[in-house]
Structures are given as structure tokens and as C-alpha cells.
Design a protein around this nucleic acid. Structure first.
Length: 442
DNA sequence: CGCCTTTGACCTGCGC
DNA sequence: GCGCAGGTCAAAGGCG
């Protein structure tokens, strides 16, 4: 730091065309002087400059005892007098992110060395000087930076408080939800019986629906484990880069449920999961106005896997697919699907045309290249209602449109995210805070 | 022509 | 045993 001071002084004084040895002597003197010697040092300096003839705009600096700097600007030179304005600028050594630590103040200690000139005239000339404007501008900018830093810090603190509040709220929500589920579990046999005398099979369906609810209410945590349920996204279609939510209720029962967003107006009960299915029946059930479709895996004749697809009672835009059994064959790869497309025509449920969703406020969808990662820690109700329009990919056009659809999908995602984020005022504040934080760190 | 969907009939399990 | 509801079968029809 000391070295920097000497060099600075040396360079500045050199502009006055002084000799090097004089500069060395002056630097030494200036650095040895205490605060009380400042005026003497300054007077000496002024005399030297008057002889050497400084030009307008020459700048000199002196370090104060408190660690600050004093800057002097020779603002005007005339035949009659040197008009010098001295600015005091105090800048602390350590500039941190805390705005309070960066205390920068300007005090006008203008000195007019008027020999024969009317002071008013000098003042007028001084005021017209460009350096006045420059100094004022600098002062204003300094003030604005200070204000901005203060504002950013305030927003940061506010953001932190909101995050803490949200965390607490989520925790409370989970606790309440768990209690509710416990209560339901304790009372469920009687309640179900009283509410609707239905068969055992219907109870299984209800448990499916219940598991849906359970998932919907789950929140927080990075593990795809929710109580007795396992959530996996293993059935996503790799070709179309979309994911669905699959819940394995019980590993031993080999039964799992998948919830897929679908257009309510679409009467086809098609859940595209990458496997080949043959529909063998359809039935209207009592508890649901929507028909239930029955599928068998048609990829391998010996494959015992069956699938039931029905719209959710609560949300018609959601298809509930119940899988029974395990495939005894690998998933049909892209080549197989492509080759079978022609012969199987529209019967093949190719890929996933539905995107299980994301909540725009926290953006659980992360898109990286052609891969979309779905954050399953989001509330599943929100997950099931994507703001993203579906991109229906006709199976017969899969080959030609695969690349195009991928681009379209990405375009949709980008537009949707941009739209959601731009509509969210808190996002703007958060973005500003993030950028400013990064800026301050640098 | 081959494969799939549709749909009515039949089967099965459960509750009463 | 009967009725009900879910599940399955298979013939008929559609589509490329």
C-alpha cells in the first residue's frame, strides 16, 4: 500500500516537470509528515507548482492519517493567479460488500490564490470550468453507487427472509400433511365402507388415487422417496426427452402408477411410455365417468405386463396409468420402434407426448441440450398441470419430425420459461440481487 | 391382408 | 345364491 502511494505521488509530480531527486525528497517528506504538516506540505507544493507552471487538470494526492486520500486538482491557470481547488476524498482501505464500510465523502475546500483578480470573477470562471462539472459528476455517481449498493443489500436481506419463511411454511405443510395422512390411514376402512360399498378392486383404485394425492401433497427433499412410495422417472421416453411421474406403490406387488398430463378433449387413453401396447378392452367404471382402457404389452408375446389407463376423477387433464407386472424384455429401442412403426400404425403408443410439469416460480424443469430434468421435489399437483403446451408427435411422422419436434419442444420450453419468469415480479428482484451479488463479489 | 380398435358378451371376485 | 362391478375375450369393423 505504501509502495503504491509513493509511486502515485512520483508519477503525479512528474507531470509538473520536476527533477527526479526533488520528487524523491518530496515523497519522503510527504510520507513522514503527520496531519498537522499537511498545510505546510501543500504550501510548498503550491509554490513549486507556481514556479514549474502546472497546467489545468493536474492532479495531486496526499494520504491522510486516517487512511483516506486527499486529492487536489489545479482547475485553472491564468496570468494573474493560480486557482486551485482541493477535494477531500476519504476512502477506507477495505471496501467490502457492506456499503457502510465504503464511506466516500467529498468536501469542497476550494482555495483561491487570488493576487489581483476580483474573487467573484474568479468564482465565475471556476464555476464554468469543465472540472467542476467533472467533479460534480463524480460526486453524483459516487452517491448513486452508494444508494444502489444499499438497495441491493436491502433486497438481499429481504430475499433471505422470504426464503426462510418459505422453508418454514413447507416444513409446516409437510407436518400437517403427514398428520392428515395418518388420520386417513387410521379411519380409512370404516370411512370407505360407509361412503361407498364397493368391491375390493375398487379399493385398489382408490388407493391409486390416494397415492396420487399423497404424491401431490409431498414436498421438499431431494430423494424420490415418499413414505411407502417410490417415485421414479424410469418410464420416460428417451426419444422425446419428456418425463412422466411413476409411482411404485409396493415393490413386491409389481404394481405401479403413472400420472401423465393429457388434453382433456382427447378421448384416446394413450399414455406413451416407450413400450408397445395392445388394447384389449375398455370399460366404464362406476366411480369414474371416463372409460378405463385395458392394454397388454405387445412387444413380446410372453410379456405379462398389463396396463390400465383412465382419466383422473379430480383432474380430467390427468391420465392415470396403472401398470401390473414387469416386462421380461428390454425396452424397445429407437430402431425397433422406428421399424415397427409402419406395421403397427397408430396403435403403437410411441414415446411420451406429455410433459409432466413444472412450476414456473421455481422452475423445476432444467433443460440442458436435449435433456430435460424434472424436479420431482415440486408439488406433484403442479407437476401434473404443465403450463407448457403439449407437442403431439404423430407416430407416423416420428422419423421425419423427430429433430424438428425436439427443436419445437425446446423453443416452447424457452418461451414458456421466459414468459413465466418475466411475469413474476419477484424474479426480477431476485435476478437483480443475484447479479449485484455476483458483481460485488468480483 | 394384417393388425389394431371397438364393443358386447362373458368371466371372476366380492359383499350381502 | 344373487347382484354388482371390474376384468377379459373375441368377433366385427376400420385403416393403411
Amino acid at each position: 500500500m505504501e509502495e503504491a502511494i509513493k509511486k502515485t505521488k512520483y508519477r503525479k509530480v512528474q507531470r509538473g516537470d520536476e527533477e527526479d531527486d526533488e520528487v524523491e525528497e518530496e515523497c519522503q517528506m510527504a510520507n513522514e509528515e503527520d496531519d498537522g504538516g499537511w498545510r505546510g506540505w501543500w504550501m510548498k507544493k503550491m509554490m513549486q507548482q507556481m514556479c514549474a507552471g502546472p497546467t489545468s487538470g493536474d492532479l495531486d494526492m496526499k494520504r491522510e492519517n486516517d487512511g483516506g486520500w486527499r486529492e487536489m486538482i489545479v482547475v485553472k491557470r491564468s496570468r494573474e493567479a493560480w486557482i486551485v481547488r482541493v477535494w477531500e476524498k476519504r476512502v477506507m482501505h477495505h471496501v467490502t460488500r457492506d456499503s457502510k464500510a465504503m464511506d466516500s465523502t467529498w468536501v469542497d475546500t476550494s482555495l483561491g490564490f487570488d493576487l489581483n483578480i476580483n474573487p467573484l470573477k474568479v468564482k465565475k470562471e471556476f464555476d464554468q470550468s469543465n472540472f467542476t462539472d467533472l467533479a460534480l459528476k463524480l460526486s453524483t455517481d459516487e452517491q448513486q453507487v452508494g444508494d444502489l449498493v444499499e438497495k441491493i443489500n436491502r433486497v438481499n436481506e429481504e430475499n433471505k427472509k422470504l426464503s426462510e419463511m418459505l422453508t418454514v411454511m413447507c416444513e409446516n405443510y409437510n407436518v400437517l400433511q403427514n398428520r392428515l395422512m395418518d388420520l386417513k390411514r387410521n379411519n380409512s376402512p370404516n370411512n370407505i365402507k360407509e361412503a361407498s360399498p364397493i368391491s375390493k378392486k375398487r379399493k385398489t383404485d382408490q388407493s391409486d388415487e390416494q397415492s396420487h394425492n399423497n404424491i401431490s401433497s409431498s414436498n421438499g427433499g431431494d430423494h424420490h422417496q415418499r413414505g411407502n412410495y417410490e417415485i421414479s422417472s424410469s418410464e420416460e421416453n428417451a426419444n422425446n426427452n419428456k418425463k412422466q411421474i411413476r409411482i411404485r406403490e409396493d415393490p413386491n406387488s409389481k404394481t405401479s402408477v403413472m400420472y401423465v398430463h393429457s388434453d382433456p378433449s382427447d378421448s384416446r387413453l394413450i399414455v406413451k411410455d416407450g413400450y408397445l401396447w395392445r388394447k384389449y378392452g375398455q370399460k366404464v367404471t362406476r366411480d369414474n365417468p371416463s372409460p378405463r382402457a385395458y392394454f397388454k404389452c405387445s412387444f413380446a408375446p410372453s410379456c405379462p405386463v398389463k396396463k390400465k389407463v383412465q382419466r383422473s376423477v379430480k383432474d380430467q387433464s390427468v391420465l392415470v396409468a396403472t401398470y401390473e407386472g414387469e416386462h421380461n424384455h428390454p425396452r424397445p429401442n429407437e430402431a425397433d420402434e422406428t421399424s415397427t412403426m409402419g406395421s403397427n400404425r397408430g396403435a403403437v403408443q410411441h414415446g411420451s407426448s406429455s410433459v409432466a410439469n413444472c412450476n414456473s416460480s421455481s422452475s423445476p424443469i432444467r433443460s440442458s441440450g436435449s435433456t430435460i430434468t424434472l424436479d420431482l421435489t415440486q408439488n406433484a399437483d403442479a407437476l401434473l398441470k404443465p403450463p407448457i403446451p403439449e407437442v403431439e408427435i404423430p407416430s407416423k411422422n416420428i422419423n421425419n419430425n423427430k429433430n424438428v419436434n425436439s427443436a419445437v419442444l425446446q423453443h416452447f420450453l424457452v418461451e414458456q420459461m421466459a414468459s413465466s419468469l418475466s411475469k413474476d415480479p419477484s424474479f426480477t428482484a431476485a435476478l437483480a440481487a443475484a447479479i449485484s451479488g455476483n458483481f460485488l463479489q468480483k
